[in-house]
Nucleic acid binder design. Structure first.
Lengths: 126, 126
DNA sequence: TTCATAAGTAACATCATGGTTACTTTTGTG
DNA sequence: CACAAAAGTAACCATGATGTTACTTATGAA
């Protein structure tokens, strides 16, 4: 398990990596709707082997997106939204300037700026 | 290049996979601040070889996070925030119920629900 | 035209990922 | 206790990701 929040770079890797597989995203959806599901019950919802599902779960737990606890011979699984919350906090902050309306035209404006830069370089050389 | 938005599952894979590497996230940060940067100039900001940087760029372009265009013998690079916007749209929608204050207590409530389930199963068997 | 620069391609090495089957351990129940 | 069920571990395989060096192509400039 990885208990620290994704404040260091490597932790973001774990979160994004975990989300970069449809099966794992689907696991999160399922666990969101049915918290406390056991490993076997979750595995039943997938075509691949139970062991494959357990490996996906290990990835999700490493990323902190799933937490679990033993309950007799079963293990109960819970979705933990915190890492996604943190992804949201960090990235919308950093890119919020782009969100609001001025998004569509980025490339054209960027090209204009590139022409400026190029011209400036040329002028400097001469 | 991958021109379609991440509405199909496989496209989400590409976006998350692309974000799951610190170097690539840093490339996005750099390109956000300096649109129109050339491949070589971008590569200069990294320790790894130019070829490695080009491979990272290929991943980012596949995901639609970077667009580029030739300019003479150079290639100019631009950050495209659209896929991140779409990630935000989809995931905050789907998980918004968790965002608002009731987050901290998920596990405890889930455990209570699990006990309910377990009890119900037991009752059914008897 | 000649040369240097920017970018791209090929081939390869290494390690991680995602899957399998077979076996072991833990634990509840007849 | 004896057995079945749930989970976990080990070993293996195929493929993909990340990096390298060496070479090729395209283009701007002397």
């Amino acid at each position: 398990m990885n208990s620290r929040p994704p404040s260091e770079d490597a932790s973001w890797d774990l979160v994004f990596q975990a989300l970069a597989h449809e099966s794992r995203r689907r696991m999160l959806d399922i666990l969101k709707d049915r918290p406390g599901l056991t490993v076997g019950a979750l595995a039943g919802a997938f075509d691949v082997s139970r062991i494959a599902v357990m490996k996906h779960l290990a990835v999700l737990e490493e990323a902190g997106l799933v937490v679990s606890q033993k309950d007799g011979r079963a293990r109960r699984l819970y979705f933990n939204p915190m890492p996604i919350q943190l992804v949201y906090d960090r990235w919308t902050d950093q890119y919020s300037a782009y969100w609001s309306g001025q998004v569509a035209d980025i490339k054209r404006r960027a090209e204009a700026r590139a022409r400026e830069q190029k011209k400036a370089e040329k002028d400097k050389r001469q």
